[in-house]
Design a protein around this nucleic acid. Structure first.
Lengths: 229, 229
DNA sequence: AAATGAAAGTGAAAAAAGAACACTAAGTCC
DNA sequence: GGACTTAGTGTTCTTTTTTCACTTTCATTT
């Protein structure tokens, strides 16, 4: 190994920004820390990266522990590396975000956490470490990404109505959209499969259900199709 | 410190993708490695991150050593962390890219390098480590960024002609642009200052010279102006 | 000094995309 | 049966993007 001992005084971690959508608001999964530093503060879930683990496997491990989910949409955001970002020593952290269907999950408290909870984005207050900065940067990346690629579906159940999809986009972008224009645009992408079923148990006209067509997405992507909303 | 010894077996490096434009092609600054592993191979310049150094200061240090330049456009790209990406041990690397004016610089060979050279993007072959993957990802990010924000100016001299600016965009995007549409678009952003001078020593009608107006840029950015090309 | 070559500079018309906008339909609930 | 709630649907206007060709101004050549 060509490295002197001195270069190993830095630890590295990942932090997960896990987004969920509850039919009205965008939420993130936060933990309440059980240990110092920042005991009793809300924080992003995270973990140290294992020595023999590919970087991307670390946030996957955190997600699995926390939610039981495997195969989740996961995207690297940015690495945060100020010398003093962690009070107990040098820790460089790589932020990831995920999109999950909030109803698929009943999160479990994990090692470092006293408590795990979904918090509406707009209700997030002071977080531990530099996690507010990480969250803010991640949100802006999510907003950019969601306009560029059809990733919003990851936050919804397998079948959903166009109104649900629209409120999801409105929650993520924090902006109202025109119903007719939204439908025109989304349907013109041909990414939705009509599942020939209707919403049930609602006190109004039931909406048609759609599902996302991942094959169609791959085909269009290969053709360089533009998915901008 | 809450970390056990075991967690420090990973080293941290940064790798710099330094872009320069030579009036026709997009180039990057590569080093020819003097040492194993990958002795005699071309590679991205990089360095281990110092213990007491903010992450972002590491690529700034590399740039300074290599080019003598300070105040350079620098953007974080992505972190690469496969377990076996470095044959001598676990090294996680954070990629950055910079845009510099190629004529401002006569690069100096640095510690690890036998040789430093500008290479046209299209002439880049096999690089050391996973540097081809890093370069490819960085190029795609540059192409996205250049459409989103007026960063192309960083690659040009202080004053430049509209044709130079256009060939720069064409080189970066690897795509021909319509002269009239390009001018219309770029001038409508009001980011160019007419320096009231003309090109000299060319065997054709001399072009007007412009410079970039950074104040104007900051004002427009604060207003949420859209700079898409 | 006239002709040639080479890039600079300029606008209008057509097509495409985006934004604004209001009523009818199909259910449940009371 | 009436009230209530959300679903669903097209057209017009505005803005943006695309397409396309000729004249100007300099240096160089003869």
């Amino acid at each position: 190994m060509p490295f002197t001992n001195n270069e190993f005084r830095t630890a590295f971690s990942v932090d997960n920004v896990i987004f969920g959508f509850d039919d009205a608001d965008l939420n993130i999964l936060l933990i309440k820390r059980a240990e110092e530093p920042f005991a009793n503060h809300w924080a992003l879930p995270g973990a140290l990266v294992h020595q023999d683990e590919d970087l991307r496997d670390a946030p996957i491990r955190v997600l699995k522990e926390l939610t039981g989910l495997d195969n989740v949409f996961l995207e690297q955001v940015k690495t945060f590396g100020k010398v003093n970002r962690h009070p107990s020593g040098r820790v460089i952290t790589i932020a990831y975000y995920s999109l999950i269907n909030i109803h698929q999950v009943s999160p479990q408290a994990m090692s470092f956490a006293e408590k795990v909870s979904w918090i509406k984005i707009k209700d997030v207050n002071e977080l531990a470490f530099d996690h507010n900065e990480i969250l803010e940067f991640t949100l802006s990346k999510l907003r950019r990404d969601v306009k560029r690629r059809p990733i919003g579906f990851e936050l919804l159940p397998d079948t959903f109505t166009l109104s649900q999809l629209q409120s999801l986009y409105e929650a993520v972008l924090d902006k109202e959209l025109d119903k007719r224009n939204f439908r025109k645009k989304i349907l013109s992408m041909k990414l939705l499969l009509d599942v020939k079923e209707y919403q049930q148990g609602v006190a109004h006209r039931p909406a048609k259900l759609f599902s996302f067509d991942p094959d169609r997405y791959l085909t269009l992507k290969a053709e360089g199709f533009n998915f901008e909303i």
